[in-house]
Every structure is written in structure tokens, then in C-alpha cells.
Simulated assay, not measured.
Amino acid sequence: MNTLTESIHISGLVVHCHKEAQPEVVPALAQISGCELHSQTEDGKLVVTLESDSQQSTNAAIEAIGAIAGVINTGLAYHRVEQL
């Protein structure tokens, strides 16, 4: 039996921030490992993806996003685990 232990966690999130804080939130997202911004609106709604190697690192990234000054809410919209 072949047991695969390596995996990638792919998550899609909607991040809502104060529109006044958006110019600071966007570059802060880029500093989080595996985080990529895909879309944003003028009123502070952002669509991002996270790629990580474990559920723990996914949770840590989501917590880091939520801790960015100006972020109101981070909502997980999608999560998938792919075996490598």
C-alpha cells in the first residue's frame, strides 16, 4: 500500500476590511506566506487564496490575516487538500 504523507492545502477566502485601510491591508497580505490576492472592490472586499502544507499553517495564516489592522472579517469559502 502506498501511503502519501505530503499534501497541499488550498483555501479560498473573502476578506472584508475598512475601505480606508485597504491600501495598507493589500501589501500586508503579500507578506503572508502562500497568500495571493485575486480580486478587490473599492469598498474593502478582497478575494484571496492560501496555499500551505498543513491545516495548522492554514489556520495560522487565517489568524494572521484577521490580525491585520483594518481587517473586519475573514471568511473561509473553500478548502481542499490535495495529496502530492
Rank of each mutant, 00 (worst) to 15 (best):
M1V: 12
M1I: 11
M1P: 10
M1E: 13
T3L: 14
L4I: 13
L4A: 12
T5E: 13
E6H: 09
I8M: 14
I8T: 15
I8N: 10
I10K: 04
I10R: 03
I10T: 08
S11E: 09
L13V: 01
L13P: 01
L13S: 02
V14D: 06
V15W: 03
V15T: 07
H16G: 03
H16Y: 13
H16V: 14
C17W: 06
H18L: 14
H18D: 15
K19N: 14
K19R: 15
P27A: 07
L29N: 04
I32F: 02
S33H: 12
S33E: 15
S33R: 12
G34N: 03
E36T: 10
L37G: 00
H38E: 03
H38L: 08
S39E: 10
T41N: 04
E42K: 09
D43F: 04
K45I: 10
V47T: 11
V47K: 02
V48I: 14
V48N: 00
T49Q: 05
L50W: 00
E51W: 02
E51K: 08
S52N: 09
S52E: 09
D53G: 12
D53H: 12
D53S: 14
Q55A: 13
Q56G: 07
Q56V: 12
S57L: 10
S57P: 02
S57M: 11
T58G: 03
T58S: 13
T58Q: 13
N59G: 13
N59V: 06
N59H: 09
N59C: 08
N59F: 09
N59P: 01
A61S: 14
A61L: 02
I62A: 05
I62E: 08
E63L: 11
E63T: 10
E63C: 06
E63Q: 11
A64D: 00
I65C: 00
G66K: 09
I68E: 02
G70K: 09
G70S: 11
V71T: 06
I72L: 13
I72M: 11
I72V: 14
N73R: 15
N73G: 02
N73A: 11
T74Q: 04
L76A: 04
A77I: 08
Y78E: 02
R80P: 00
R80T: 13
V81D: 04
V81N: 06
V81E: 12
E82F: 11
E82Y: 12
